[in-house]
């Protein structure tokens, strides 16, 4: 309810509504974030299942690693399926990051003046979405240099993923970077999955508890699944 209104900018004159647009709208950008986020989440589920094969020994894990390159054969040529996955994932990361950047810029501009009396707002997972996202993005760069291109992985042997995983988690920094990033991913999924459901219009009062439970379950299972590998290497279960 507006009692006093500005009189100097012609606000009393009724203007036509602004142009409707999908990408130009905050809701549209959120939809792009939700869809790209869910795509990446789906990939993580497949990824963690592959990772856990490390517990069945070097032969099975390395065989799985080689299958990733011949996936889709004989319809697709060597590594084609892998490259399709990579391109789709890269597009999802770029779409997710660009919309996050534009929305964050807008959000900060919409609240330029902070309250003098501050209090803690929202849950930890919610408040750390932006920094958590940046941490995860930096981790992905390191992760690719470490286990795909093997650039930063000392003692790496091309074509032997099992040995390379053991080599990575035999260094203290390898473990610290990985476990920190996985905790960040867990928090990001916890708020992100539930938010995506709201943005895509799936959320409702009756589904809220179920959606929150799925979000927490996914976050917990993925984080625990990923962290199980460095813990196993550290404790000598995998060597």
């Amino acid at each position: 309810m507006a009692l006093a209104t500005r009189t100097d900018n012609g606000s009393a004159v009724r203007k036509p509504p602004p142009k409707r647009s999908f990408w130009g709208s905050t809701v549209g950008k959120k939809v792009v974030m939700a869809v790209s986020g869910l795509l990446m989440l789906g990939y993580l589920v497949a990824h963690v299942m592959g990772n856990l094969k490390v517990f069945f020994g070097p032969a099975e894990f390395n065989e799985y690693g080689h299958w990733l390159r011949t996936m889709g054969a004989p319809v697709l040529h060597q590594e084609w399926a892998l490259w399709i996955v990579r391109v789709v994932l890269l597009a999802a990361v770029v779409a997710h990051a660009v919309s996050a950047y534009q929305l964050s810029k807008r959000d900060i501009k919409a609240r330029p003046k902070k309250y003098v009396h501050q209090r803690k707002r929202a849950s930890y997972a919610t408040r750390t979405m932006r920094w958590g996202g940046i941490i995860v993005a930096l981790f992905i760069v390191w992760h690719i240099l470490d286990l795909t291109t093997l650039t930063v992985n000392e003692n790496a042997q091309p074509g032997r993923p099992y040995e390379n995983v053991v080599a990575t988690f035999s260094t203290w920094y390898g473990n610290v970077i990985y476990i920190t990033a996985m905790l960040a991913i867990g928090l990001h999924i916890r708020h992100g999955f539930w938010s995506a459901a709201q943005t895509l219009g799936v959320g409702s009062a009756s589904r809220d508890r179920a959606l929150k439970a799925i979000a927490n379950g996914l976050a917990l299972v993925l984080t625990a699944g990923f962290i199980a590998v460095p813990v196993a290497v550290m404790t000598g279960v995998v060597s």
């Binding site: 509504p17 950008k29 929305l103 807008r106 919409a110 929202a122 919610t126 539930w194 938010s195």
Partner: peptide, 18 residues
């Protein structure tokens, strides 16, 4: 139209903080 006007008025986006 209401969402487009909401954005044009300079309100921020929703991050579902609740």
């Amino acid at each position: 139209d209401m969402v487009a006007t909401m954005d044009a008025e300079g309100f921020g986006g929703c991050t579902l903080t609740g």
